[in-house]
Design a protein around this nucleic acid. Structure first.
Lengths: 190, 190
DNA sequence: CGCCCCATGTAAGCAGTTACATGATTAC
DNA sequence: GTAATCATGTAACTGCTTACATGGGGCG
């Protein structure tokens, strides 16, 4: 039930609506968890029933009303307890690696195309994370509070992860070009 | 349906039984996919129905009979087609990062314990991958066949991934010890 | 005698994805 | 006007996990 715990973690930082949660999951906390809005609303409902959260209806004018969820004492205790129970490392499941494993089935150019598509996506994510880093943690030598320090470490993970992916993509693309004598694609001259 | 494609990829390399597949998924090809035996048997059944695989019953003495699955022409074409359709990067979902994000809820020592547990698991995996590397690809300068080259690249991913995890664990543990003035645990003197 | 390995499966339940639905406001 | 943003959901489906089940052979 790690989605529930991820939600607790985010709401503990600051209470918000399901809609806002969704955006936080696809944005700033996306480097450790992702969830769709359907998943989030369902889970919020369950968690409220169990007493982990409490909802407060916020009336708004000019836009739909919303429910603001905050973590209860019970929810907080649940989260604490969960932290202390050891977990196995998350299993790796990556489409790109499966594709590469059987890359010999198609032409090197076609594999290169897939790799470059992937590379670009990781590049974009890295940009986003670096943006967050320079906004939220501009001073590398600053003394951080406990909460900021832990959050920064998870962001650091995201940055290392994407950097490693890019390095791997570079390595594979380089090797492929060497062994198949493909020259890098250049912008066509007008 | 990426599990099906991962199974195709592995069976294409060499046909085997569901039981063997399971072991391959938790061992040598574990750096790009994992699956439980229940998942595998169910998926094998479906794939045989669809004509992607064909099964051959192997009678054995002194041990249970088994079914040896191999990839059909249809399955091979499916896999090729799938390779060429672009996919989004796999979403990150990692318990350890959620735990660290709310690490301030428990003592630094308790977080360190979780981190070290994780570190050890990644260390063990790295050992396994390095073992496979030195067994299957002993000569770094050797010219590899297309299939070997692609497989080697996926193994390289596994190695980079685990190395990056270990580096991150080191970084976090180091920072935690500095800010909380915890000295490294030493083996107790007898 | 108990436990692990080989080898295959069923059944129940939870997690995640895809598609559908509503209805107001704001920006181009 | 039409597309996007805000805000919430339901329903159906697929994927994954956990638990249960069977049965012979080999090891300590």
């Amino acid at each position: 039930m790690a989605l529930a715990h991820a939600i607790l973690a985010v709401l503990l930082e600051s209470p918000c609506s399901g809609y806002d949660l969704m955006k936080r999951f696809e944005g700033s906390v996306g480097f450790f968890w992702r969830a769709s809005h359907q998943q989030i609303y369902r889970e919020l409902g369950r968690m409220e029933k169990q007493g982990w959260l409490q909802a407060e209806l916020i009336q708004q004018e000019g836009r739909p009303n919303k429910k603001r969820y905050s973590v209860t004492e019970i929810g907080r205790d649940q989260l604490k307890e969960w932290i202390l129970t050891p977990v196995e490392v998350s299993p790796v499941r990556d489409d790109m690696l499966v594709k590469l494993y059987v890359g010999y089935l198609v032409s090197p150019e076609q594999i290169l195309e897939q790799l470059q598509h992937h590379q670009q996506q990781h590049h974009e994510r890295l940009q986003v994370y670096r943006q967050i880093e320079s906004c939220s943690f501009p001073d590398a030598s600053a003394v951080l509070s406990a909460t900021a320090l832990y959050q920064y470490q998870t962001l650091r993970y995201g940055i290392l992860y994407e950097t490693q992916w890019l390095a791997w993509c570079e390595e594979v693309i380089h090797t492929l070009r060497l062994t198949h004598q493909i020259s890098p694609q250049e912008a066509p001259d007008p």
